Computed example of a mutant assay.
Amino acid sequence: MFFDLIFTGMPGGPVPGTEVWAEGMGSAPGGIANLAIAAARLGLRTGLASGFGDDAYADWLWTVLSQQEGVDLTAARRYRHWHTSVTVSLALDGDRAMVSHGHPDPEPAGTLAAAAPPARAVVADITQPGDGDAPWWRAPAASGSLVFADGGWDPTQNWDPARLATLDGCHAFTPNAVEAMAYTRTDTPARRRARLAEHVPLVVVTRGAEGALAVDSATGAQVEVPPLRVRALDATGAGDVFAAALIGATLQGWELERRLRFAVLCSALAVQHFGGSLAAPGWGDIADWWDATVAAARTGDRAARETADSYEFLEDVLPGHALARVRRAEATIARFSDAMPDTAAPAPAPTVRPAG
């Protein structure tokens, strides 16, 4: 769990002895909150097992997640004398650079996850240590949960290939192209897919502005989906939004190409706003994009017609979802009252536990 502060519209990155002014900024829940909020906005009943500090950032994060976004924090914990991790994200050249500070969680992920209710799917980061020799997600996998494993950033940059052995029992692995290349020690997309497919039934590699590719070893299907061309404001959390959409589409039983296209769409909509979590689209955003795409196709726009043909499945999907509006990141931390629906009562104070 992170508090994210995002700067956009920068002429370049800062260098020692200089000051750079950004045209825009936004504050948002970050880290695993990106994925939790993105999933909740797509209508999935979503819970989060994570540690929160006892500072003002944590107060705000807890309120936004539980009251504004409807994320179940039953398995989350707050710890006394432990501060919130913070990331400053700089949007540069269509990607992002980050500076982060934080401390290891007071309790292992498995301890928190053990308190979570049963779930059809869980998300895990393979860079996180397990309890003893067994990763925490083995227990939910044995109970029938589909485990979607994320590559995660390795701060040591060793990218130990032995970590891939922990994928045993996972349903899918969703690294980005850099992570896939680093973990497999390969230099071509085909070799990366083949190496990773040895460990999980479904491999999905995100490639940012180049789209995504996937291989389903159970069926032998291999799919490559191009990106959607949009004006990107901030790529922070785009991979998390992609993963949330992929999980939702998988739980709906969609075929592989449709799942990938939907995930590419959701991440493309997200990068047009500040921050990964509060930039995540709701079904109303998806409906607006679809209406605009169809309208452009009817004018004879060839690119819009090709896009509309590729996403025609949305005609059948959209009627089953509420088209509610969602909140976006603000420049500074919003007042607590702004993070709650008008009819909502204040959230009960969560238990704060000792960090030691």
Rank of each mutant, 00 (worst) to 15 (best):
Q128L: 15
V294E: 15
A121H: 01
D54W: 12
A56Q: 13
S337L: 15
V241W: 12
L269D: 09
A263Q: 02
L164F: 11
A292P: 14
A162K: 12
T46C: 00
R78S: 07
L278K: 08
S27A: 15
A49N: 03
V204T: 01
A308T: 04
R191M: 13
L5G: 06
G151S: 06
L92W: 11
V215R: 11
S85E: 02
P319G: 10
A56T: 00
I333D: 03
W21I: 13
W21S: 07
P226L: 11
L246A: 05
V20Q: 08
R353H: 12
F274S: 00
A280T: 10
D234W: 09
A180F: 03
H321V: 12
P106M: 10
N176A: 11
V71C: 04
Q252I: 07
A28K: 04
P350Q: 08
T299Q: 07
A177L: 15
R80W: 15
A56K: 02
A162W: 11
A295W: 13
G132I: 04
L164K: 08
G70Q: 09
E179F: 03
S66H: 12
S143I: 07
A109S: 01
V64L: 09
V271K: 13
Q68I: 07
A218Y: 03
T166I: 05
P161C: 13
A270Y: 01
A38D: 00
R45F: 07
L246R: 04
P135L: 03
L90Q: 09
R78Q: 10
R96G: 06
C266M: 09
P117S: 15
L318G: 08
V215D: 06
R138G: 06
L167E: 02
A124I: 02
W289D: 15
D54M: 03
D72C: 11
A209H: 10
W254Y: 15
G220K: 02
R259M: 08
A238W: 08
T84K: 02
E315L: 13
A287G: 15
P227L: 08
A214S: 14
M340V: 03
S267K: 02
H171G: 01
H101V: 04
R298Q: 15
A91I: 07
T219H: 02
P29K: 05
A177Y: 15
Q128R: 00
T63I: 11
W283G: 01
Y57I: 00
G275N: 09
D54L: 01
A232I: 03
T236F: 07
T127W: 05
P155K: 12
A33W: 05
R96E: 06
A109W: 08
A197D: 11
L246S: 13
A115P: 06
P281E: 03
